[in-house]
Amino acid sequence: MAHIDYYFGTQSPYSYLAGDRLEQIASKHGAQITYKPLDLLQLFDRTGGVRPANRHPSRMEYRGQELARWSQHLGMPMNLKPAFWPVNMAPSSYAIIAAAKAGGGDLAGLVQSFLRGVWAEETDIADDGVIRDKLSAAGFDPELANSGLFIGAQVYERNLEEAVEAGVFGAPFYIVRDSGQRFWGQDRLEFLDRHLASL
């Protein structure tokens, strides 16, 4: 069974646009996914990237056009200027990490709900009430928002270190453990699909 390490940030627009295509591909090939939320801004700092707030206006203008094109192409609603962005990614990431450890719910759905919350639902994914609601809707104990803080913080930091070591520099980023092949961006999911078919 192939294993995919999925690195992402819960406020990443391109992780949102990936939708559930990763899960569909993994299911098709019998692959397993490990979700690794991390601090994208620190990842940029550590790997030569530039935080959005510090990017040249021409780059940000192009980013807006590209996001609009992909949103339309994929049929996914998207607010290019969301009410709660940038947002503290740590609380939602901690919740995802705690939910993964607890099991029993829809982890993929939880991940997607946080991303959708930022880019399509105008919700503050750092708000405790929002986090609890999303945990509950995905079939997890909402108390994980509190009980998972310690383990969440530890793993969140470790995910960043592992990402840097593994060659990750953006999101979404997919690494197939079995082959070491890396895929950056939701527009590379087709290549991931082809690669898994060749294993």
Results as ranks from 00 to 15, higher is better:
M1N: 11
M1K: 12
M1W: 09
A2R: 12
A2V: 08
I4H: 12
D5C: 03
Y6C: 02
Y6N: 05
F8E: 00
G9W: 10
T10W: 07
S12T: 09
S12V: 06
Y14W: 15
S15Q: 03
L17E: 03
L17V: 06
L17S: 05
R21D: 14
L22F: 15
E23V: 09
E23D: 14
I25H: 00
A26T: 07
S27L: 14
H29A: 01
G30Y: 04
A31W: 04
I33H: 14
I33D: 12
Y35E: 04
Y35R: 09
Y35M: 03
P37I: 02
P37M: 03
P37G: 02
L41Y: 15
L41F: 14
Q42A: 14
Q42W: 15
L43C: 04
L43S: 04
T47Q: 15
T47Y: 15
V50Q: 14
V50P: 00
R51M: 03
N54H: 14
R55H: 12
H56I: 01
P57H: 10
S58Q: 14
R59T: 06
M60G: 01
M60I: 04
Y62G: 02
Y62L: 01
E66K: 11
A68F: 02
A68N: 05
R69C: 01
R69G: 01
R69D: 00
Q72A: 15
H73M: 12
M76E: 00
P77G: 09
M78R: 08
N79Y: 07
L80W: 01
K81W: 01
K81I: 00
P82L: 09
P82G: 09
V87M: 00
V87C: 03
V87T: 04
P91R: 00
P91A: 01
S92G: 13
Y94V: 05
Y94C: 07
A95I: 11
A95F: 15
A98K: 00
A99D: 12
A100T: 08
A100V: 07
K101H: 13
A102C: 06
A102D: 10
D106S: 02
V111C: 15
V111F: 08
V111I: 11
F114H: 08
G117K: 01
T123I: 05
D124G: 05
I125Y: 10
A126F: 03
A126P: 04
A126K: 02
D128G: 07
G129Y: 12
S136D: 10
A138Q: 08
P142N: 09
L144W: 12
A145C: 10
N146W: 06
S147C: 06
L149V: 14
F150W: 05
I151V: 14
G152Q: 05
G152H: 05
A153Q: 06
V155T: 13
Y156H: 15
Y156F: 15
E157N: 08
R158I: 06
R158M: 09
R158T: 11
E162A: 13
E165C: 08
A166L: 06
A166K: 10
A171T: 12
F173C: 01
F173D: 02
Y174F: 15
I175V: 13
R177N: 09
D178H: 08
S179V: 09
F183C: 00
Q186N: 14
Q186T: 11
D187G: 05
D193H: 12
H195I: 07
H195C: 07
S198M: 13
S198V: 09
L199V: 08
